[in-house]
Design a protein around this nucleic acid. Structure first.
Length: 477
RNA sequence: CGGAGCGUGGCGCAGUUGGCGAGCGCGCAGCGUUUGGGACGCUGAGGUCGCGGGUUCAAGUCCCGCCGCUCCGACCA
């Protein structure tokens, strides 16, 4: 059977970023908005985000972190309080200078992240060790005036969840930061079927105001890395700026230790570029808004097909099912459209299936292979197939990542590997100068020091000075 | 902000050295025939050529200014 290439989608090999944009638009996940750098998340894309939210929100609550909501506007002065924070975020904020037709005494910033306004409140709410730990998550929109935007990956306004906790000790905060990181790991592995690399950011790459930034790095199909979630151990930096203190059991007044962690709509971009192919999206069953789509092939006896359709719907069981009843487009057209949208399983029913009391199934990740199933077995087959697809997508992405990762010891090899779009593990002496030079010469940055990195004697791949651990280097989004 | 490119019905484009009524494909609407990998026929709707100014008898086309978008860098989740 021949599978026609959808001609509206630029092949990945020809131009990856155009492929990406084509898929986002054709799959109707999002569209450009008439505002600089902003997008409209369309119903199908938002349904996907709602799947993310539902899953992640459950995990967050299970970890004992309730939701709350803080204001979109932040007084200008708040952002100025933490030194690194202000240096980093000031240039990229939107500022409200007028309200109700009058100039404001103090401008308001549209939040680029909520540390400052949340911690202002935290300082009011925390006074005793009994008030700790304080843990709050919020689902919100934030605005960052980025110079260059891209659908889902970097939009002026984006949606995310940000968790913010305050603890009595450093150990507790560290534990929480790691818990959040593991939560994101599970989210990516188990639900998005993507193989994440966990690690610690270098000082250059860490969050402004954090002591330590943990990251989830994921390889996209063009070999670039996407920072797909972060978790920060904030130490006492913000506690000191916002005067968040508590009286401990030993009667002494102490600053709290804090964390913040987040995952944004960028994770949708990661899903697209981690699994998608030249036919469009490929969605893992657990997050797919639609898990299977029924496409009836109308014979001359319409009515009978409709009756059979009802039987099939009943026999399908508990999957998220869509039925494409449109008469104005041909079955072939529908096949292509649902492939672009990445629906994991297509169910074809026509005169033939009706006759034999069967359906024909086609997997999105294995186009061209048709599976015939009887009605009695449909329910079981669908659920096992969905599991199989989920597992196979993860395995495929893991293999892809590993196949494109290299240990490298010489500068020549390093440059070559980066040019070949690899994830490169190399010794680095830790100096910001080397990091900067490497970036200048290869466009690759340190992505992280992997959590599982071993300590050995080595030489910095750039300057040759002693180094003890291999860092992950790659080009990134 | 620097480099490159592009703005002509919803989308993709053509429109030559300025010259009569601004076109093509797809899509859209109506009717009919179709339906196992993007079906077909007929009829039809839809455009202040990104915006502003200028040159000219005449501007989509030439000149100046502005705006917007895409791609490539620096900032970043």
């Amino acid at each position: 059977m021949k599978i026609k290439q959808p001609e509206q989608i630029t092949p990945q090999s020809k131009n990856f970023s155009r492929w990406y944009t084509d898929v986002v638009l054709k799959a109707q996940l999002a569209d450009y908005a008439p505002v600089r750098g902003c997008m409209v998340i369309r119903p199908y894309g938002y349904a996907l985000w709602e799947r993310y939210q539902k899953i992640l929100d459950g995990m967050i609550k299970k970890a004992g972190v309730p939701n709350a909501y803080f204001p979109l506007f932040i007084p200008w002065s708040f952002l100025q309080k933490e030194k690194e924070h202000v240096e980093n975020f000031s240039p990229q904020t939107a500022v409200v200078t007028h309200g109700g037709g009058k100039k404001l005494k103090e401008p308001l910033i549209v939040r680029p992240t909520s540390e400052t306004i949340m911690y202002y409140m935290y300082s009011r709410w925390i006074s005793s060790w009994r008030d700790l730990p304080l843990k709050i998550n919020q689902w919100a929109n934030v605005v960052r005036w980025e110079m260059r935007t891209s659908l889902f990956l970097r939009t002026t306004e984006f949606l995310w969840q940000e968790g913010h906790t305050a603890h009595a000790t450093l150990e507790e905060a560290e534990k929480e930061a790691r818990r959040a990181l593991r939560m994101y790991q599970k989210f990516y592995e188990k639900y998005l079927a993507l193989y994440p690399i966990l690690g610690v950011k270098s000082n250059q790459e860490k969050f402004a105001g954090a002591e330590k930034t943990y990251t989830v790095e994921i390889m996209m199909k063009d070999g670039k890395s996407l920072q797909a979630a972060t978790s920060h151990n904030l130490g006492q930096n913000f506690a000191k700026s916002f005067n968040i203190t508590f009286q401990d059991k030993d009667k002494k007044t102490k600053y709290v230790w804090q964390t913040s962690w987040g995952l944004s709509t960028r994770a949708i971009g990661g899903l697209i570029m981690g699994h998608g192919d030249d036919h469009g999206l490929v969605l893992p069953p657990r997050v797919a808004p639609i898990q299977a789509v029924i496409i009836p092939i109308w014979g001359k006896e319409d009515k009978k097909t409709k009756a059979y359709l009802e039987q099939v719907k009943k026999a399908a069981g508990n999957v998220r099912l869509e039925v494409d009843l449109r008469q104005e487009v041909s079955p072939g057209w529908k096949f292509n459209e649902w492939e672009v949208k990445g629906v994991p399983i297509r169910i074809e029913i026509g005169p033939r299936e009706q006759q034999e009391k069967t359906v024909t199934l086609v997997r999105r990740d294995q186009l061209g292979e048709k599976i015939t199933v009887s009605l009695e077995k449909l329910k079981d087959k669908l659920s096992s197939l969905l599991e199989e697809i989920q597992e196979s997508l993860y395995q495929k992405h893991k293999d892809f990542t590993e196949k494109n990762s290299l240990f490298v010891d010489s500068w020549q090899e390093f440059k070559k590997a980066i040019a070949n779009k690899k994830f490169v593990y190399a010794y680095w002496c830790g100096s910001p100068q080397c990091e900067e030079k490497i970036k200048e010469e290869t466009k690759a940055t340190t992505r992280c020091l992997p959590l599982n990195a071993t300590t050995k004697k080595g030489k910095c791949v750039f300057c040759g000075k002693p180094a003890s651990q291999r860092w992950l280097f790659a080009r990134s989004y």
